[in-house]
Design a protein around this nucleic acid. Structure first.
Length: 577
RNA sequence: CGGGGAGUGGCGCAGUUUGGUAGCGCACCUGUUUUGGGAACAGGGGGUCGCAGGUUCAAAUCCUGUCUCCCCGACCA
């Protein structure tokens, strides 16, 4: 490609809309432009990167036996209504001229299950794994970070159908391999962590996380046994601290206007760790009190699971007042608390002489002790894990890292096949629901994650596998005949040799071309300048900028060698899986 | 959804307090010189100041409404 035929509007200054480095660089380099909140144009450079990522992904998925299809982006409401997901607030909904309802597809379990249930009747046809690469729409509460969280995005979503759970395990492992290899080939070392299944439901699932300070998710890791999980999912091991105090007598003390943990702690001049929060939550089946340490956060997913609910939400103020007999801010487990269950976090077991709400306006109990003053219905792990907690699988101590989610794979089981009555006839003559898995990768988010983890002050440093161009020939002086001749010759030789090369022959001063090449992040840079008098061109890698003078006769061969080297580095990492 | 901030040529901003001919840098166009890290000089094009209404002789500026965008936070009892 000749630069004079290319469209890549670069910006010298950073648009105010961008906060994160990847967003700034993708905008400045002319890869993307914003159209409206969370909705972007992919310009030629940006779309080239996306297409290269897609092709690597296709290669890896095809290798695992998955088949590419394309389902509708416009989904009839009936399908989402079958599983109840029509009511999710992330759906973009619309109506046709006959007033029939549709949504823009946000993930396609229902649609693909519909395909399979119509035509697959026998176990002999299984397993089947179908995938698509498609634009999805999700009406996110708050788009952010450029391509990181958008309302319209390109996603690869794959769905496996097996006759039994053993089959699902095999399909899942194949997809794990396809994902891991794709990330490595794209230059991302993504860590697979256990995660919460959220609204999708199902059994096991793992997120692929790119570890970076800019990530929006917190991952909790045990350095000792290697356990890694999203903090929403992470199990917390019990801490075995032996109490040092003697239990004192319960006392109701006035705490005027002290409602929050901070206010109560500072009023009583104690640490928030001495407090126990009583959180009143409601689910479909009842109202619950969750007791957790004053310095902890409730994990709503864990809490819901413990009480057998799909989800729980903080109870409305009037419910809180009804069950506690006091205004919000003074709930406690001592005395009358009219809830269906009282669940205490495991940590509470080891607490002595703690403080809880008094179920009376402006009052708290101090010197509260278990069994003596109240007894919860159960002790469970219901808090969000954090740094310093014990590992649930060994005696290690958990640490925290920030991560960006780039992929998420699920063992769904029969959640959708049962919900949509999708069955096949097994070899024992019985009808059974398909055992499903689903596998999602945020294709349009990947450039953002890659740039976030691979850039410097001058611009992007693309891995060669997905760079918009593999090499750039920078013609320093387009008015110098010999330089032009050399640059054109190299460009043609490289193109013929299968290198995706850009010839920068624009009427610009050299500085502009150098700055752009760095900003675009093209991995192999070839400069044709003064050296032509001695038949020399300069070649360097974007990532280290170490220049080498190479004779024009050997330049193509040298570039090919560098290209192979860079690709091999990525492939070697991929081959570990 | 709650809080904070911002909308003025493509990008970055000033001007708004105190109403009076819409400005600057970069980018863009023409010409000349220049050509190894975002050139210099000269000339030039481009904005109904987010939108609507109001006050006024006069509104980017004051008032009312509205839309959009960015950032922070998710009922923590």
């Amino acid at each position: 490609m000749r630069a004079t035929r290319m469209y890549f509007p670069t910006l010298r200054e950073v648009p105010t809309e961008a906060e994160m480095d990847n967003h700034k660089l993708l905008l400045r380099g002319g890869f993307i432009r914003k159209v409206s909140s969370g909705i972007y144009d992919y310009l030629p450079l940006g779309y080239k990167v996306i297409k290269k990522i897609e092709n690597i992904l296709r290669e890896e998925l095809d290798k695992q036996g998955a088949l590419e299809i394309l389902m509708p982006a416009l989904v009839t409401a009936d399908l989402y209504k079958e599983t109840g997901r029509w009511d999710l607030d992330v759906l973009f909904k619309l109506k046709d001229r006959k007033d029939a309802e549709y949504a823009i597809g946000f993930t396609h379990e229902e649609i693909v299950t519909d395909i399979i249930r119509k035509d697959v009747k026998s176990y002999k046809e299984l397993p089947i794994n179908l995938y698509q690469i498609q634009t999805k729409g999700r009406d996110e509460q708050r788009p952010r970070g450029g391509l990181l969280r958008t309302r319209e995005f390109i996603m690869m979503d794959a769905y496996s159908f097996d006759k039994d759970w053993e089959g699902l395990d095999i399909s899942y492992d194949k997809m794990y391999k396809a994902f891991a290899r794709t990330f490595e080939r794209c230059g991302i070392s993504a860590k697979a962590v256990s995660a919460d299944s959220g609204a999708i439901g199902g059994k096991d699932n793992q997120e692929f996380m790119l570890i970076t300070d800019q990530g929006e998710d917190t991952i909790v890791v045990c350095p000792k046994c290697g356990y890694a999980a999203n903090n929403e999912k992470c199990e917390v091991g019990e801490r075995h601290k032996s109490p040092k105090e003697d239990p004192k007598d319960l006392e109701l003390v006035p705490t005027p206007n002290a409602k929050t943990i901070e206010q109560v702690a500072s009023f009583l001049k104690i640490s928030p760790k001495k407090l126990v929060k009583t959180l009143i939550f409601k689910g479909k089946k009842g109202v619950y009190a969750f007791l957790i340490g004053g310095d902890r956060e409730l994990n709503e997913s864990k809490a819901a699971r413990v009480v057998g609910e799909k989800s729980v939400k903080p109870a409305d103020f009037d419910i809180v007042e009804k069950v506690t007999g006091a205004p919000v801010g003074f709930a406690g487990p001592v005395g009358k608390l009219q809830v269906d269950k009282v669940i205490a976090d495991n940590d509470i077991k080891n607490m002595i002489n703690f403080v809880v709400g008094g179920n009376k306006e402006d009052h708290h109990y101090i010197n509260v002790n278990l069994n003596k003053d109240f007894t919860p219905d159960a002790f469970e792990d219901i808090v969000i894990a954090r740094k310093g907690d014990g590992c649930a699988f060994c005696d290690g101590t958990l640490t925290e890292e920030k991560g960006m989610e780039v992929g998420h794979i699920f063992k769904l089981g029969t959640v959708y096949s049962e919900g949509m009555d999708a069955k096949f006839l097994d070899d024992d003559g019985k009808e059974k629901p398909f055992i499903m898995g689903c596998y999602g990768m945020g294709v349009s988010r990947m450039p953002a994650s890659i740039v976030e983890s691979s850039h410097d002050k001058d611009g992007i440093i693309w891995p060669i596998s997905i760079a918009p161009f593999e090499a750039v020939v920078t013609l320093v002086n387009q008015n110098d005949e010999k330089q032009c001749q050399f640059a054109t010759r190299l460009y043609e030789e490289l193109t013929l040799a299968g290198v995706d090369v850009l010839l920068d022959e624009r009427e610009e001063r050299p500085g502009v071309k150098f700055k752009d090449a760095d900003l675009w992040g093209i991995p192999i840079q070839i400069v044709v300048g003064k050296g032509v008098s001695e038949n020399i061109v300069e070649i360097c890698l974007r990532r280290d900028k170490i220049k080498e003078n190479i004779n024009i006769e050997k330049a193509t061969e040298y570039v090919l060698k560098k290209k192979r080297m860079l690709l091999n580095e990525l492939n070697e990492k991929a081959n570990k899986y």
